[in-house]
Design a protein around this nucleic acid. Structure first.
Lengths: 172, 172
DNA sequence: TTCAACTGATTGCTTTTTGCAACTGGTTTA
DNA sequence: TAAACCAGTTGCAAAAAGCAATCAGTTGAA
């Protein structure tokens, strides 16, 4: 019953839900990596999240409405985690955080190419991306005319990875 | 050699610096409340920060370049904390967090009026506000023609406070 | 039918961080 | 000269994070 928040300030309340070192990482991997199962999130984790922390965060994010969980019909134990409207609307925050990190922190090229595209694309691109996430996660109808932002982000990322791998080979 | 960071992802790096429950609260109070001294930050804290946590965060934020500290010439013990370019550029993140919090969390009217103005003003207003913070915190030259965004945010906040106080009086 | 690999977690343990209240040593003001 | 003010610090308990090993049910191939 102690759903007592520290204050009614919108920034504080956002921080009370997302202000820890892992919640946004989990949402980021679901959003940009399209990782939907526990194992995918655990084993592909760039930052090496521990299984108990992941389990705790998934549970908490579902409780708070930032994720939903449904059973995977192909495997009785598998759950599929999806974004909700609440977490899809975090796209602008991710974009601004990515832009800030790119400007001030020692980012790697591979892991920041998507942030760069989001920054350059601006709000119109964010809106397209959010529409696409609604299709992917909320079973919203897809507009077949629109090219996929998700695929563009993915392609740009893979291109950088391939280019760097080729450069590394050539240098050997 | 300390492999300091978990990954080179810009979102992760931003989170490693700001991803806790107090860092952004401290910066918010300096930015929007213009609180520049330890006691001001401690005693006016809406969320009730503890003195040891405040001391630790101020120290850490100065070390990481998000705040600067100088001595107050009027009092030998007083320090003046100022924003840096790095923290001034958090304005878009604060604006987006405020917008998200207003949409999805149980915010109070008083504490969200400023977030509302920032959201409605959009990026042009954010740029004006950042210019103003540079004048206030980085000793940048002031453009006397520009009306102060800081004052507008402050006035809107005080107006809501006054209106609600009057309504409370009338109800007695 | 059996068994190895895979599924989403859980357990036990240690380290780190947070939260709280009291306290410190120095400074300014009345 | 005493009270109020200043920026913190200290000691301790509780909570959270981090790590490695483990769990029991499910699946698919031999």
């Amino acid at each position: 019953m102690n759903e007592a928040y520290r204050s009614g300030c919108p920034i504080n309340l956002t921080l009370e839900v997302l202000g820890d070192r892992w919640s946004l990482i989990v949402i980021r991997d679901i959003m940009f990596g399209n990782r939907r199962h526990f194992r995918e999130l655990l084993q592909n984790s760039e930052e090496g999240i521990a299984s108990n922390i992941l389990a705790d965060r998934l549970k908490r994010l579902v409780e708070r409405g930032l994720l939903s969980r449904e059973d995977d019909p192909s495997h009785k134990q598998k759950g599929i985690y999806s974004l909700t409207e609440m977490s899809i609307r975090l796209v602008p925050i991710f974009a601004e955080m990515g832009a800030w990190g790119r400007r001030f922190m020692p980012v790697s090229e591979e892991l920041s190419i998507r942030a760069q595209l989001l920054e350059e694309g601006g709000r119109p691109l964010w809106e397209d991306f959010m529409d696409e996430l609604r299709v992917l996660h909320l079973h919203a109808p897809r507009d077949p005319a629109k090219p996929s932002v998700f695929d563009r982000l993915r392609a740009a990322y893979l291109e950088v990875v391939a280019r760097n791998a080729a450069a590394a080979d050539a240098a050997e």
